[in-house]
């Protein structure tokens, strides 16, 4: 017994121009946000300590936030409370903190009350040196660019025709830019985890695009364009929705349990996959329809 079926939109009612307009306008808005962020803060979204340098302490203490705030020589830039453990806090510092005689850990252990008698206050430490972080930033940028170029080359090698190949590339680009813009809007930080998620999006995004292109172009059934699209959609939407379900679950569970890496990956992939649904079945379909009915004859 099926509890969900993939809808079959009536593509005939919309012109290519109409179909293209929505994803392109959204992409333009996303690029505007990303561009503005690059202009204002020098990065597409706020950068986490892995890219700027700094320290994050995980502390278990009975003290409250204001006590934690004043416990250190350098004031923390951010204090977050754990969702599951009320006495666990994540305290973030800028790159210059803890350079003095006593380390941040020592300060925390001296100034704060452990939540367990005789236990440790500091449960976790992550320190990233500023110079090293800057290098990480460059490496991550190189990684994303190389991955994207590699994907583009493969796309062109697979289909060897311009319009369907560029459709894959634009769609993947948009899939990355939309979550990136949302991150910038809500102030979600770029970390190694979010970069991994953005790269993972390339893989997921291309899956459904290749599937669609394959059904329309390579299968050569010579059948109806819309039949081909609908069959690709049946499979492709199932794939994407399944992945979205997994990512949403992972993000929610990781949020509750306080595992930032998994939360970041889950959230970004969920948003990116939603964007991919739009890009694949509006942008790509329109480009393919134009190619099939107008482009080939030229």
């Amino acid at each position: 017994m099926r509890s969900f079926d993939v809808p079959e939109p009536d593509y005939d009612r919309y012109t290519n121009r109409q179909l293209l307009a929505v994803p392109l306008v959204i992409l333009a808005l996303a690029l505007l946000v990303v561009g503005a962020n690059v202009f204002l803060i020098g990065a597409p979204a706020p950068l986490g300590i892995e890219f700027t340098g700094g320290t994050e302490l995980t502390v278990d203490t009975t003290d409250d936030v204001s006590t934690i705030e004043s416990a250190f020589d350098t004031e923390p830039t951010d204090i977050q409370t754990s969702q599951t453990q009320s006495d666990r806090y994540f305290v973030t510092f800028g790159p210059e903190a803890g350079d003095g005689d006593t380390s941040l850990q020592e300060q925390a252990n001296e100034q704060l009350e452990p939540s367990q008698e005789g236990g440790d206050v500091v449960q976790g430490v992550n320190t990233f040196d500023a110079t090293f972080a800057e290098n990480t930033q460059q490496l991550a940028l190189i990684g994303v660019v190389v991955a994207f170029l590699g994907m583009s080359v493969i796309a062109f090698a697979l289909f060897r025709v311009f319009v369907p190949s560029i459709a894959i590339v634009i769609s993947a680009f948009s899939d990355i830019m939309i979550p990136l813009a949302l991150m910038g809007l809500v102030g979600y930080e770029l970390s190694l985890g979010t970069v991994a998620a953005l790269l993972m999006l390339i893989g997921y995004s291309v899956d459904s695009d290749i599937l669609l292109n394959n059904h329309v172009l390579r299968r050569g059934t010579g059948g109806d364009f819309y039949d081909d699209v609908y069959r690709a959609m049946h499979t492709g939407v199932t794939m994407t929705v399944t992945s979205m379900a997994a990512m949403a679950t992972m993000a929610i569970a990781a949020f509750i349990f306080g595992i930032p890496l998994l939360l970041a990956i889950g959230t970004i992939l969920f948003v990116g996959l939603a964007a991919d649904l739009m890009n694949t079945y509006m942008l790509n379909v329109a480009l393919l329809r134009w190619y099939r009915f107008d482009g080939v004859n030229r």
């Binding site: 190189i142 990684g143 994303v144 190389v146 991955a147 994207f148 590699g150 994907m151 080359v153 493969i154 796309a155 697979l158 790269l199 993972m200 390339i202 893989g203 291309v206 899956d207 290749i210 599937l211 394959n214």
Partner: peptide, 12 residues
């Protein structure tokens, strides 16, 4: 094809 792109995207 999808596997090839995922591997290319992840290899850097």
């Amino acid at each position: 094809a999808a596997a090839a792109t995922t591997i290319i995207a992840m290899s850097p």
